[in-house]
């Protein structure tokens, strides 16, 4: 067991998790805005700081977490030590999915998208990117956005736009996505319409 799984938790859990939650809530309520969650948590590589902060804030024994990639043992142990959350091998059972950079978006249909009765029983995907700015411009519209918003994330998966459009077409079913890079996060709830 690596020593770094015991480090990197919130120094002040009550107030830091509140601050991170408010930043994530504001980002979800205003899709397209980039929230800086601060350098408050460090998980073992390759999990970015923003993903670590979101997991520490929202994950616990009620929320199975799914990790993408083979090299997730340390991250999984880190999560279990700090939050008590269980890592699940079953993608469909996950509340949170910790994806890898360059994740294959065409496989995301395996995640829970809720049911007609309970559309909230759906996964939140945490997708790390090379950058949240400086890429190809995408236009967003939908609840939380006054008119239109433009984002330009770098390093999106190949089928990302098609997959997100398909996700939107299933509304109110669907998964919600948070793009992360370093300490930054950009939320794309299922209501958002993405156009090139």
């Amino acid at each position: 067991m690596r020593a770094d799984i015991f480090d990197g938790g919130f120094a002040d859990p009550v107030f830091t998790s509140q601050a991170v939650f408010r930043a994530v809530m504001d980002a979800s309520a205003r899709p397209g805005t980039i929230a800086d969650l601060g350098d408050v948590a460090q998980a073992p590589a390759p999990v970015p700081a923003a993903t670590a902060a979101i997991l520490l804030t929202l994950a616990d024994f009620d929320t199975p977490v799914w990790f993408e990639g083979a090299d997730s043992t340390a991250a999984s142990q880190w999560l279990s030590f700090h939050t008590g959350a269980v890592t699940t091998p079953d993608a469909a059972a996950a509340s949170f999915a910790v994806l890898e950079e360059g994740s294959d978006a065409s496989t995301w249909s395996q995640f829970a998208q809720g049911t007609a009765d309970y559309p909230d029983r759906s996964a939140t995907l945490l997708l790390p990117l090379a950058g949240l700015e400086g890429g190809r411009s995408l236009t967003l519209s939908g609840p939380g956005i006054e008119g239109r918003a433009v984002i330009a994330p770098r390093g999106l998966p190949e089928d990302f736009i098609e997959v997100m459009q398909a996700n939107r077409s299933c509304y109110p079913l669907g998964f919600d996505v948070v793009l992360v890079c370093g300490t930054q996060a950009l939320a794309l709830p299922r209501t958002v319409r993405i156009e090139v």
């Binding site: 998790s17 509140q18 939650f21 994530v24 809530m25 979800s28 309520a29 804030t57 929202l58 994950a59 616990d60 009620d62 929320t63 509340s95 559309p119 909230d120 759906s122 939140t124 609840p143 939380g144 109110p172 919600d176 709830p189 299922r190 209501t191």
Partner: peptide, 16 residues
Amino acid sequence: TKRMIRRAILKAIAIP
């Protein structure tokens, strides 16, 4: 309790 409510709030925002 706060975590549970916060998760509910985020899903509520995603499904207005």
